[in-house]
Design a protein around this nucleic acid. Structure first.
Length: 497
RNA sequence: GCCCCCAUAGUCUAGAGGCCUAGGACGCCACCCUUUCAAGGUGGAGAUCGCGGGUUCGAAUCCCGCUGGGGGUACCA
């Protein structure tokens, strides 16, 4: 297969949102294609009408686009290729490699039940494998639409070559005659995927490890057609954080689009997913280009890995704090702030004062943001006239007298009224001196100011916050705080007295 | 039950016979920085390399068995 152009595909079935496991398969496949300058094809395996979920194709497409995994061909829908699969199934029947089966679901279920009762491995008993033409005609006369089953050899072994695990040998006698064409005329995965992979010139079949048990069937089907085997790469499954089974929707945020909504960066998600089963020495942070250059399917660790929400969250924060630029972060935060109604549309234009202001705010949050969505909660007070409502006692730190806090705020207002708000160091020096004079620790003075200015006890650095807030709003908020505190002190003393 | 895959700290992993007194990262703990929260810095706890046999002068690395975990066992993918 050396010398041929690499062609790979991502082939999800439209049964729901694209989840992180599927996204990782797509990523590995895409990286391999890009590394080799090959083709990445998107194929939709919609051959089960019962499990089809409306809108999931759109979701898959949106997810892949968001992650930046662009495809070169497709999406190709298997449901539009039914004729192709039917012809191939008929060809196998004509060659004697497949046969129509008229057994009812009820009979199959009964057979399985009996096998289980006898402790035998369940499987089709091949009753229709050797029907006489007369028997076949009889079933046809009854109007039964048959399924087509593939004839597995009854003895010997089938070897599946897997890129990550080497040759895997299966006993043919333990394999059954699987259905390849259903009675509704749709193919099963086994037929459709093999036919498409061949017709589309797929060189490397990347798919989840859950396909390993049916791989010998696939090998036999391909051989029955006389086609060349592709390179099989069975990617390890992703396990739940507790390791108990495959990761699934029940385990929390698992859909790719959920991460988009929660304010994760696609590059962080990509980086995290790449590290789940693949590594490059001690390096952990990779640009997309580095990933393309360094990635190799052969180096994938075949053991299943658990999904860690914690590490993904860390990765996202790391990208926000250290990788992307301030302007980039600003641009990405604006949609969240817009949606919350905190900033005007003008902020989207980088030449406007509104945009510049958002950037100043975001600059203060760059080291604190874990997700983009958090920007709303963490910065809302920068975009409103006053602060949100807060209880008066929030202004009084532990082990501090309300009266001295009130005095501190009064004096602070006087000092700040005459201060240059662009001079953070100057404001800090003046207020530190004030704290000294009042016999307070810096924190005992700074916390009330913080609460007055922001309405909360957690915020960016105090003086940069004041600078961005500006004198007018700061003084107004200090006035509100002083009134609130005076009322509180009065209430306390009357209660005490 | 049967078949298949996998097996280094709580988690993701480095390691392809001697470089390993097993390296990195997340998480955890402590200290430093410090006006809160983060970020950052320094240090720490945490792995008899699942267990038992081999092979070898020498094994986390090779072989076998066991155990554990995972996957499959559909007219689902």
């Amino acid at each position: 297969m050396t010398g041929t152009r690499v062609r790979v595909r991502f082939a999800p079935s439209p049964t729901g949102d694209l989840h992180v496991g599927g996204a990782r398969s797509a990523l590995f496949t895409w990286l391999f294609a890009r590394h080799h300058g090959g083709d990445f094809i998107l194929r939709i395996e919609d051959t089960d009408r019962r499990r089809y979920v409306e809108g999931s194709v759109e979701g898959i497409v949106e997810s892949l686009k968001w992650l930046g995994l662009e495809w070169d061909e497709g999406p190709i829908f298997q449901s539009q290729r039914l004729e192709i699969y039917r012809e191939h199934a008929e060809r196998l029947v004509a060659q004697g490699d497949a046969y129509p089966c008229y057994c009812t679901p009820e009979r199959l279920e009964q057979v399985r039940a009996e096998q289980r009762a006898r402790g035998e491995p369940p499987g089709y008993d091949r009753r229709c494998r050797n029907l006489t033409p007369a028997e076949r005609a009889e079933f046809e006369a009854q109007g039964i639409t048959p399924v087509i089953r593939f004839k597995m050899p009854e003895a010997g072994t089938t070897v599946v070559p897997d890129l990550l695990r080497g040759n895997i040998t299966f006993e043919n006698r333990l394999l059954e005659d699987a259905v390849i064409l259903k009675s509704d005329g749709f193919p099963t995965y086994h037929l459709a995927a093999m036919v498409d992979d061949h017709l589309m010139g797929i060189t490397h079949v990347t798919r989840g490890e859950e396909w390993l048990p049916s791989a010998p069937l696939h090998v036999r089907i391909i051989q029955a057609f006389g086609w060349e085997l592709p390179t099989f790469v069975h990617l390890p499954v992703i396990l739940r954080p507790d390791g108990k089974g495959k990761l699934s929707k029940r385990d929390g945020a698992v859909g790719v689009l959920e991460y988009q909504r929660a304010g994760y960066l696609p590059e962080a998600v990509i980086n995290y997913l790449a590290l789940l089963g693949w590594s490059y020495g001690d390096q952990e942070i990779f640009t997309r280009e580095e990933l393309i250059q360094l990635f190799d399917l052969k180096e994938i660790n075949p053991s299943p890995a658990r999904f860690s929400f914690d590490k993904l969250a860390w990765m996202n924060q790391y990208y926000i704090n250290h990788i992307i630029s301030l302007e980039d972060l600003t641009v990405r935060c604006i949609p969240y702030l817009r949606e919350a109604g905190l900033v005007p549309a003008a902020a989207e234009d980088p030449t406007t004062p509104e945009h510049v202001y958002v950037r100043e705010v975001v600059a203060l949050l760059k080291d604190r943001l874990k997700t983009l969505a958090e920007v709303v909660e963490l910065t809302s007070f920068f975009f409103t006239e006053g602060t949100e409502e807060y209880p008066a006692d929030l202004l009084v730190p532990r082990k501090t007298e309300p009266a001295s806090v009130l005095e501190g705020l009064d004096r602070t207002r006087e000092i700040l009224a005459g201060a240059d708000f662009e001079d953070e160091a100057g404001m800090e020096a003046a207020l530190r001196a004030l704290a000294d004079e009042l016999g307070l620790k810096a924190g005992q003075l700074f916390m009330p100011i913080r609460v007055a200015a922001t309405g909360r006890t957690v915020s960016p650095g105090l003086f940069e916050t004041l600078r961005v807030l500006g004198k007018e709003r700061t003084l107004a908020r200090l006035d509100v705080a002083r009134d609130k505190l005076r009322a509180y002190v009065a209430e306390q003393s009357s209660a005490a007295g």
